[in-house]
Design a protein around this nucleic acid. Sequence first.
RNA 1: GGCGAGGUAGCUCAGCUGGUUAGAGCGCAGGAUUCAUAAUCCUGAGGUCGAGAGUUCAAGUCUCUCUCUCGCUACCA
Length: 689
Amino acid sequence: MSEHPARTLVTSALPYANGPIHIGHIAGAYLPADLYVRYLRARKRDVVWVCGSDEHGAAITLRARKEGTTPRAIVDRYHEEMQAAFRGLDIAFDHYDRTSSPQHHAFAQEFFLTLLEKGAFTEETRKQFFDPVENQFLADRYVQGTCPKCQHDGAFGDQCEKCGSALSPEELIDPKSTLSGATPEWKDTTLWYLPMDRHEDWLRTYLEQGDLEGHAHHDPKAWKAHVLGQCKSWVDGGLQSRAMTRDLDWGVPVPVEGADGKVLYVWLDAPLGYITATKNWAEKNGTDWEPYWKDKDTQLVHFIGKDNIVFHCIIFPILLKEHGGYLLPHNVPANEFMNLEGDKISTSRNWAVWAKEYIDDFPGRSDEMRYVLASIMPEQKDAEFTWEDFQARVNNELADVLGNFVNRVLVLTGKYFDGKVPAASGLWTETDQALRELMGRTPAAVGESIERYRFRDALQHAMGLVRAGNKYLTEEEPWKVIKSDAQRTADILNLALQVTANAAIVLAPFLPRTSEKLSAALGTSALPWDAAGGDLVPTGQPLGTLPILFDKVTDEQVAAQREKLGPDAAELGLRDVEPEKPGTSFDDFQAMDLRVAEVVAAEKVKGADKLLQLTVRTGYDERTVVSGIAEHFAPEDVVGRRVTLLANLAPRKIRGVVSQGMVLMASTEDGGLRFVTPEEGAEPGDIIR
RNA sequence: GGCGAGGUAGCUCAGCUGGUUAGAGCGCAGGAUUCAUAAUCCUGAGGUCGAGAGUUCAAGUCUCUCUCUCGCUACCA
């Protein structure tokens, strides 16, 4: 406990600015960080916690197009909304920034240029195929044509899978874009890749031994199993080069001559936002940001969800190390996912508890949600939130155990000692001693758990003190003792009050509002964490009044919340769907040959989870079509069905099977698939137009 | 398909480097109690630790096979 870093920089994953915040986000990356940081602040440690909105990327431009507005308008709206959601749950960042700010753009460009100068990227200026329809450059794999060696006509730009020859895309005869089918143009472009394979050796040492550049850096045993497991699996599997730029018009422009229409890959740009945010925090507070990112005595901790592990543990560290001068993460305590009422949380299906709606429905009751989420936090495996469980925890634990304990102590003191802290004799019984010892070791137990990112454990320890307090009162029965021994009654209540004051401190990270109310009533506000463990409330201290700390959650409230899950009634008439594609021509439509066909045989493609190999009868031939529907349909379910076939689609080899056409499917809102089946009477071979 | 993490009492979950009768909270049953928000406290019932095999004096804890869940990844024309 004595050794600790000189300062700690904490980050939480930058939330993506195209949707509201729900409890899955909160429990994953924000509440744990908030608990950790509140604890460190209470210990008077030097800690800074930064976060911000991740505002770039293609999804935001798509959303803007759908809503008929600009990306700027979208990110501005969510930037405000997300901050309000965090405030509502008392998620208290030291600084919340955004990646679309001029400062961030400038910093990200500078960082990119430094990497470029240091040779961190492989830069390739070369001619590359460009799809004029999709208006973007095509990776080798997205070009297909006839193999110059074996005349196989499904060869990819990098390799012919028929004869195994390695190819360059320009060698292909009659190349086509696999995105649009258009004939690509041969144009100059520059791409910047991060060759991650160069970094495998030191990454392995860093991850497995916790050593960096020959020095002990962190304790790998302190990392969560699932985090290390996933990282090792990546490194052991061999790291690939990753393009660090994208062809988009919304993002941080690549700061290189002639790179118009290119932006930094969001995964490069977003984590740099942590640094920008730290800089802006420092400027706001008139201090220096550099020690937080560069001093050897600083500890860097990233709080994220499990979907972000590889980026924070592998790619970002590579970037930081290549740049030089920056610290690498000392721990990445990623949480797993929070499920909801038996199902995955889903934004599009409105299967979520939105932070903002919770606060609207339960105003002033942020502590309750914080408590429940901390109790069930998905620290080592996925967790499950249900409203029934929420009700039980709030009612049984917060109201009955904590709230009632506080109330008993205050009422008894009010009744017997006029609301003033009675003087203790100092003669403690064995029972008293046992409780005092528990009180003495609880702060360390809670703190140790928090420092190990075991927040549920920490909360258990803190609540354990309160439970012991209830037990103490029941066993010592001051309401009986008062009749015969006023001093003994004073001793009992004095100790019960000390327990209450201690509980206020150790519960403060979890229940900041409740803790503040309690401390205010006891006159122990502003006591630091390290004061806890002993007597805190001075004799004679008049106690303030406290309203009931926690209202019970009613069955009606539970029912109403469950009712809100699922598709919104208002949305049922007007669906939230992908925007319509830009206009096409009648000629383009005419170019497609759509036919009625019948499935005569079906089998799973071996080695593929999602692929079904179908044999379809078109009336004029029988052919093989590979379709990605195996997760929705068993082979026997599809045999005999009449389907809509795009018959003249260029053949393509998928998983070793040549697919001659495409079966049209409707994808439903819940992620399911339905065949587009012609009405009775249509026969295989009938033309659809 | 490859890889990773999980599968422990009715529910939500702990069980660190293998070692006496497998734990907590909630729920349930019985009892005690009344200062308190019908709150509290005590006692108890409940588990072949996903299935099967193996290593060991000893396995929830190590190895192998299988199975289910979640994630990453490839293939979804």
